[in-house]
Design a protein around this nucleic acid. Structure first.
Lengths: 343, 343
DNA sequence: GTTAGCACTCTTTAGTGTGGAGTGCTAACA
DNA sequence: TGTTAGCACTCCACACTAAAGAGTGCTAAC
């Protein structure tokens, strides 16, 4: 069956109404709806068609229709107009917090949650290809060495390692020299046994320390456990009755608590400059079981080349896609500016 | 009125029963209860007394009684016997995660939440009196210096600062020397203008950098924004109907989300060695409005001298105080061991 | 001092009926 | 042939009622 112009309009009206009310919408409501001057009976016929085509569904025999995932998808893909949203006062709020990435991202999450009334998740920046820029060991006291690893993009990792015996200042200097000459510029795959062996030979009798240091470096290069995710406004989902039944709520809130669950958020392979790769996932498209009744809109921010993070907004399927997308757009531009400044 | 022995026993029975069921408990239930062989009528008389004394209350005329805060308090203070709980398999689970404080604390929160079915909050260690152990500046590239501040207790803070112009290796060395000779061993209150002035004089023409560095140090010494709080099992509160009415749930969950709210958790002035300062807060005793229908049990762990953190378990007033306290005790001992080992 | 018994209160639950919203179908109309 | 009006039907939501159950307080008897 063809999706006629009129059907599209009706579909649009159904979704718009449903987004507002959250109630199944009936033919009479649509027939009273603005432009299209059609009786409820006609609408009924059309709705019957739309149902057959899979765009809408009846929760029970004598109820109105609600959009299916396919219906939402249609809306998001074709019907959303790009109207510019009132620009929020995000700017001032953000600038204040911009000093530390962590606080910045937390505020982003909170601001978004407050201004959209949905739940938000923000992932910390992920570093795509990590290479060692330089390494530095420093004595802390008799039995502890501070290991500092600076990676590409000026990411600093540090860890204190225990030593069996005191290493004198000279020894530390030597270790520093050896480590830096051998490892600078390498990524994790290039640190093979040959390299390690050569370090150990040059370092003399500090094998144990080398092992510890390499361990720290390995962690710095591979560990994703600093793949932080900040969430905010989780309780907003309680505002939407269709999500708030006990079963679901627990699962959803748990999903938010277990931030790790959103590991499915790989950073994008490539993001065209200034493109924020805004994407909409509806229902099962999220690939998260507990979110099957939700939708999620994600965007990608870019701190540096190869350093990306994601921002996601989770709400009911009847979320105001239009507003969310444009809010995200505004916000992303703002973030871009902040990162550029701070470089 | 005197709190007779029999009244105590009845009180105990009431609380125990209520803890299990969460329902108001009636006189008949208690009369059937184990030891005391009394008819429901007698119990009724006693309960009437207990109500007058403020230990229990009737939610409505023809309902059983439930304990008041005062009643719980009586129970916690006098009636809880110290029976040892089955030791959980916390140990093995914890050891695996012990490598990083952060992951360790997260696991603690999760484990506690799972094994108690209440919500947990764990605050990261707080450093009571912070002093600078040493400072180190390192060139990263032409326009960036890495500032590392090591504090008492081997806490490492780092930040990258921008410089207007390149500072040569010699300059950095000099700065390092000056900073360390002037600042090592000082706490924040001792870094007064005189000290700062003297640094600037000795450092020559690197005033701007000194300012940035002092800024970093100041942050390291004062900022509580790394007062991390980990939560887990927030959704557990949905398991207790008396907490799960919509109004309350939102407020409670928000309290958990806004971890900062628990700033009221000052570290204790003193904690006797090996004492974990386990405390029970009932209802309004928590001083958190949204928790007026909850109870909270907190314990203090000790990483080092002057480095404390707190663990809290939040549940309904009818929480199983006995079990929670002994679970916490077991856990704290375990943590003590881990911290000792890792020293 | 303790207990049995009874009247009374209040909540919970199930059951019932009514009104409203919405549909699908049919027949009439332009 | 597309549109509309009308009607019978379905189902949900809500209010109301009735009955059951739990528990109390009081009184009188042991």
């Amino acid at each position: 069956m063809e999706l006629s112009d009129r059907k599209q309009k009706i579909m649009n009206a159904i979704i718009k109404t449903y987004l507002e009310t959250g109630e199944p919408v009936g033919s009479r409501t649509i027939s009273k709806f603005s432009d299209l001057n059609l009786s409820s009976a006609t609408i009924r016929n059309e709705m019957s068609d739309l149902e057959e085509m899979g765009y809408i569904i009846q929760p029970h025999t004598s109820a109105g229709r609600i959009p299916t995932d396919k219906g939402y998808r249609l809306y998001v893909d074709t019907m959303m107009d790009d109207k510019v949203q009132e620009v929020m006062d995000l700017k001032e709020n953000l600038r204040e917090k911009a000093d530390k990435m962590e606080t910045l991202l937390k505020s982003v999450a909170k601001l978004l949650a407050n201004s959209t009334n949905y739940a938000t998740m923000v992932s910390g920046p992920q570093y795509k290809s990590k290479r060692v820029k330089f390494i530095q060991l420093t004595e802390v006291d008799e039995s502890h060495l501070l290991t500092i690893v600076v990676l590409d993009g000026n990411i600093v990792k540090n860890e204190i390692i225990k030593t069996d015996s005191k290493v004198d200042t000279e020894g530390v200097a030597k270790l520093n020299f050896v480590l830096n000459t051998c490892l600078n510029g390498l990524d994790v795959s290039e640190m093979n046994l040959a390299v390690i062996q050569s370090i150990k030979e040059q370092a003399g009798d500090h094998n144990r320390i080398i092992d510890s240091v390499l361990n720290v470096i390995g962690n710095a290069l591979t560990q994703d456990d600093d793949f932080e995710v900040y969430t905010s406004g989780a309780t907003n989902i309680l505002k939407y009755p269709e999500l708030a039944d006990k079963e679901n709520v627990v699962k959803l809130l748990d999903t938010f608590e277990e931030r790790e669950l959103i590991t499915k958020w790989q950073p994008p392979e490539t993001v065209e400059d200034n493109g924020h790769a805004i994407q909409v996932y509806i229902g099962n498209e999220t690939n998260v079981e507990s979110m099957k009744d939700c939708s999620m809109v994600t965007a990608t921010y870019r701190v540096n080349d190869g350093v990306y993070g994601k921002i996601g907004i989770v709400g009911p399927k009847r979320m105001d896609y239009d507003k969310v997308v444009s809010t995200l757009q505004t916000l992303m531009n703002e973030l871009d500016d902040i990162f550029k400044e701070n470089d």
